[in-house]
Amino acid sequence: MSAATHTPDLVEQALPDPETPQSTGRRVKDRTATVAVWAAFVIAMIPLVWIIVALLVKGGSVVVSASWWTNSQRGMTTLTAGGGAYHAIIGTLLQAVVTAVISVPLAIMTAIYLIEYGRSTRFGRIVSFMLDILTGVPSIVAGLFIYALWVTTFGLQRVPFAVCLALVLLMVPVVTRSTEEMLKLVPNELREASYALGVSKWRTITSIVLPTAFSGIITGILLGLARVMGETAPLLILGPYSQSIATNLFSGFMGTLPTMINAERNEVAAIPLDRVWGAALTLIILVLLLNLAGRLIARYSAVRK
């Protein structure tokens, strides 16, 4: 080795000679880690790819027909092919929108309170703790809670709006937490700059802090929405399936994609099975479109350099 040709000082003793080939031990470790990381990645991707391929293969033919997007399942039986998922798409979107309209203001205002006002207060810590608990509530428990409140306590009928209330319980903690993270990312210097201009705290929040965090908040909302759209348990308890188009949230039943999947799955025949795959693929497409829209909004409104 060339290191022997001149006197090694302390530094050279501490650092490996750049010309020394990598030791076998390190090479083995490096290879093992590389293989392990790649293997983990591939294993994680298998179910995802599998699901998408299966959905495309089995549901693709159903989804490409125009009537799938324009017709409901009204009057269709297990023996009559055709009909569509329009009623379920409308139901899912309607419930998601109503859920979002209730959840988003609640969640954003909670996050603003927690970050901007209640950071070191006792009440803030309590709210934050409760939020952690709410995050961990299983969706079926949220559904049962609303059932107990809506049907058992108030004696009301099961209606789509009750489903929305259960979904609100699931969406609020998700959006609150993500909004909190985004608000934390807004540098304090910007708040101080605004205060120093004689701007009140509330105007600073609405005009400086929220716009700066806007794209991140939107992303969080869409992730929460995507989660809520695929939620099934509260729907099974509170939102019986209907084959017809329904838009009234306060009476009757309403079809949604998850309950459509569940209803058709219970039939033993080839035609309903196609509808299961079609509805599943439709749900994934909707969530994908939502994410895409979110990305576009985020990019369009991102902090410009």
Binding site: L190, E192, A193, Y195, A196, G198, P211, T212, V303, R304
Partner: peptide, 20 residues
């Protein structure tokens, strides 16, 4: 304090223009 800051302005150590 908000009106105080309106008549006594401040410039900070690090430039902090509003990024949006």
């Amino acid at each position: 304090p908000v009106s105080v800051r309106r008549s006594v302005g401040m410039v900070f150590q690090r430039p902090n223009p509003f990024p949006t």
